[in-house]
Structures are given as structure tokens and as C-alpha cells.
Design a protein around this nucleic acid. Structure first.
Length: 177
DNA sequence: GTTCTAGAAC
DNA sequence: GTTCTAGAAC
């Protein structure tokens, strides 16, 4: 089953960039930016929906290790850290992705909107919610569907583009900024 | 999650 | 005619 693919990838030395007793950090097999990693716990947490107050220390640890890794290896690159509201793959995974969004693997509207709308839930927001209310507020399935269908808007300058190829061409032009 | 491809959109 | 999207995958 394809949705179990991450469980195999997280054991593959070819993709692993860091691991310890609690977590594994891997390269995303289909990076949606110039740098894109995933941080996964060894603990069998299926997804963000299963996360509760008791997992706060683990989520903080994942976030801290991700920040340590990127600041050490890519001190000049800006990253964002967060979770998809409706992940496709099993095992909780924190996306660690550079803000360029420039990648040959970014091919469709869902790819784009899953990282540039509220579908992407920042790690710091998730932790704040867990600490203040003990739970996480998710967008509904209908809201997620609408977010995925949203217009293609540049995350840097808010310009709107009619197609993915036009958007991608524009995104590349921001690299020289 | 990706690949493939029919047919919509241009 | 070509580009591009969107839905099936047994």
C-alpha cells in the first residue's frame, strides 16, 4: 500500500540524514523545494490527528532537531516547519522545507497549495494550540478541498498565475532577489 | 503519495 | 496542434 511508503523510506540509509532513539530525519523522496526533509518519530503515531497533549515534548523535540539541522547545514537558507492538515502518508511527519518552492517535482495545484495555504500548519502554531487548549483545531474536509482548489498565488509577492508552468517560471525569477 | 493519459483549455 | 489539468489506478 502506497500510504505506508514512509515507513520503509525512514529505514533507508539512502534517504536518512539524521537519527537518534526518538526520531528519524529523511530527505523527501519527491522534494517540493530545493531543500525538503521530513522528521518522523519512531513511536507509532499515525498522523497529526492522533497527537495529544502528552506528545508536546516529542513535537518540541522534532521541531528543535529540525531547526538545529537546518541552521547547521543550511545557515543561509530560509525554511518553514509544519504539518499538512490532511496528510496522505502514514506516520506523523514534520515537513522541513526551504521557502524557495523551486522544484521539478512540484507538478500540480495540490502540491502548491498544500505548502502555501493554511493547509500547511506551522509547527509553532500546533505547539501553541496544544499548550493553550490541549488540542489542535483542524480545518474541515470541505475547507481542505477548497484550499486545494485555490488560485495559484505566488507566496512571495501574491501575484496570481493561470497555470502551474507559468507560476513555476515566476517562482524561479524570485531566486535572484 | 505518484504515474499515466484523456480530453479540456488554449 | 500543443499545453495543461484532473481523475483512475482491480
Amino acid at each position: 500500500m502506497w500510504s505506508l511508503g514512509l515507513l520503509k523510506t525512514m529505514k533507508d540509509p539512502k534517504y536518512m540524514v539524521f537519527s537518534d532513539t526518538k526520531i528519524v530525519m529523511i530527505k523527501d523522496m519527491y522534494p517540493k523545494a530545493e531543500h525538503h526533509f521530513l522528521v518522523l518519530p519512531h513511536e507509532e503515531i499515525t498522523n497529526l490527528k492522533k497527537v495529544t497533549e502528552k506528545d508536546i515534548p516529542l513535537l518540541e523535540y522534532m521541531f528543535e532537531k529540525a531547526k538545529q539541522y537546518t541552521s547547521k547545514h543550511f545557515p543561509d537558507v530560509e525554511f518553514k516547519f509544519g504539518y499538512h492538515a490532511q496528510p496522505s502518508m502514514h506516520r506523523l511527519h514534520l515537513h522541513v522545507i526551504s521557502k524557495d518552492m523551486n522544484s521539478e517535482f512540484l507538478k500540480n495545484k495540490k502540491h502548491w497549495n498544500s505548502f502555501t495555504t493554511e493547509f500547511f500548519m506551522n509547527s509553532s502554531d500546533i505547539l501553541r494550540q496544544l499548550k493553550t487548549s490541549g488540542k489542535i483545531k483542524f480545518p474541515s474536509a470541505a475547507e481542505c478541498e477548497l484550499m486545494m482548489k485555490r488560485e495559484l498565488k505566488c507566496h512571495r509577492c501574491n501575484l496570481v498565475f493561470p497555470t502551474i508552468p507559468k507560476l513555476k517560471q515566476h517562482i524561479r525569477s524570485h531566486r535572484a532577489d
